[in-house]
Design a protein around this nucleic acid. Structure first.
Lengths: 125, 125
DNA sequence: CCAACCGTATTAGCTAGGTTAGTACAGCTG
DNA sequence: CAGCTGTACTAACCTAGCTAATACGGTTGG
């Protein structure tokens, strides 16, 4: 389910957060779904339970999941809405990256083609 | 000339590298231009000389600048070509970010509008 | 020639963040 | 009650990034 890259510059607990958020955004996980327990996930990923808990507690603070002692952790109802709103703030990152590509001399038509391509690809998934 | 954000998650030496590369890409600095000396830059930015040297030595390894003991550091002839080539590899980052925005529910038209806007803005600079 | 600048090298130490380890407590559930 | 769940806490370790101080050798201009 989760794929962790220990060599990555981004911390493991952030990789978990990012991947779970994408599961929600893509519909792979829905409101009410139960997450793997802290201990079982730590075993299957060969990662310390504390690291998993750090990811879960941050997701809980964000309102993406709801952790209940004795029961488990579950996707909240607001999760999808919250995440969509957050992603929209990436629009500025998108513009920054776009400016870099312009500096590199990429034409507007090339960019438009690229956008079309990605949109077609995303529809198939 | 340089603007350093000590609070940023990206290391100071990488900020220097990134900004200098952008100076070259935007034409603010050209082949043969002399960079501020390690010591003078460390003074003006209130940063340890070692940190500046780390940035410079990495830029030297990349072939962006050429450091000569006793003389100084200078933009190489190949700098612009190298950097343009490197920036092209950001196209995959661009696609990844785009996929995220699609997940957030942004329409293709909104993206196209954004691209048009950034291109118009970049032409004025 | 020499003082003042240049880049470079080396060693040491500090800090913050990320991760691991071990242990413990409390709430559910069958 | 046994076994699962989340949670809390402390201690230790490692690494990256940065700082500090010092030293060496090349270049340049007065």
């Amino acid at each position: 389910m989760f794929r962790i890259d220990l060599m990555s510059r981004t911390p493991v607990y952030e990789q978990i957060i990012e991947q779970l958020e994408n599961f929600v955004l893509t519909g792979a996980m829905k409101s009410g779904d139960k997450l793997p327990s802290v201990r079982s996930l730590s075993l299957s990923l060969s990662i310390n339970p504390n690291t998993i808990q750090k990811a879960y507690s941050e997701l809980d603070t964000k309102g993406i999941i709801c952790s209940v002692p004795g029961k488990g952790s579950f996707i909240t109802e607001k999760a999808l809405i919250i995440l969509k709103q957050n992603k929209l703030s990436q629009l500025s990152d998108f513009e920054n990256l776009l400016e870099n590509l312009i500096l590199a001399g990429i034409s507007k038509d090339d960019i438009i083609d690229c956008v079309e391509k990605v949109y077609k690809r995303s529809r198939k998934i």
